[in-house]
Amino acid sequence: MSDTTPVLELRKVDKSFGPIDVLHEISLKVRAGEVLCLLGDNGAGKSTLIKTLAGVHKPTRGEILMDGEAVTFDRPKDAADRGIATVHQFGGTFPLMSIGRSFFVGVEPTKGWGPFKIFDRKTANEIAVKAVRDFGITRIEDGDRLVGGLSGGERQSLAIARAVHFGARVLILDEPTAALGVKQAAHVLRIVGEARRRGLAVIFITHQVMHAMAVGDHFAVLIRGAIAADFRKGEKTREEITDLMAGGESMADLEASLDTYMENHEGHAPQPAA
């Protein structure tokens, strides 16, 4: 797999907002049919990295390559046209629209001609329902249902199915499992697996190591805007990854120091620093 050209590659990308450096020399590669897990605690720069990939921010230095060719995104639309699709934590952004309508926002299928073109609701619903069902969500049968009535996992699945249907090649999943229960999260992880099977390059952003290990082929840990570790599946254990995310400080050390503190303070946990 390593001899194929990555679909998306970042080379020493820096991003600063004024004097503040948020991303520092980020180099990443993601290939077709591969899931890259981007792990990082809150404030590690994950959001900025996603926005840079999605064309919202422009890198201050460094370059972004697609299929080995340097690209620049001036607007989110440029990234989308190149096949980079971002699915956010809560899935669809139009909770009060029907499944069929929201699936085709901006690219509505039509019947008829000229000023009398009509929105082909039946086709839209059929295609949308089929697309999510192909991803294994068989509970969705009616394209007239409102998106807001779906469960969190179903909404994520719908958003992923939509991105794939419209030819996404790189799928950026921004904490897709963060707000979900165990069952729903398993659902979404299966769909991530399905997207990989279909040959998409997936960038899976999360801080849940278990979820990452379930689907990831390749892992990168982001700490304070820099890649702290870059390794492949099976090269590190869960404990090692958790320790890495906690900023190099071993989770075991932390627990030990907490225990000592509690012993010395009659069982009271330390007050959080203000």
């Binding site: 989110p76 639309k77 989308a80 952004t93 139009f94 909770p95 009060l96 629209m97 309508r101 929201s102 085709f104 926002v105 901006g106 690219v107 509505e108 039509t110 073109k117 009509i118 929105f119």
Partner: peptide, 22 residues
């Protein structure tokens, strides 16, 4: 009935997403 109606709903749902959707 017309596709423009879908745009109007999307616009009211989320202006930025609607614009990103073209």
């Amino acid at each position: 009935v017309s596709p423009v109606g879908n745009w109007i709903f999307a616009l009211g749902g989320d202006r930025v997403s609607a614009r990103n959707a073209g």
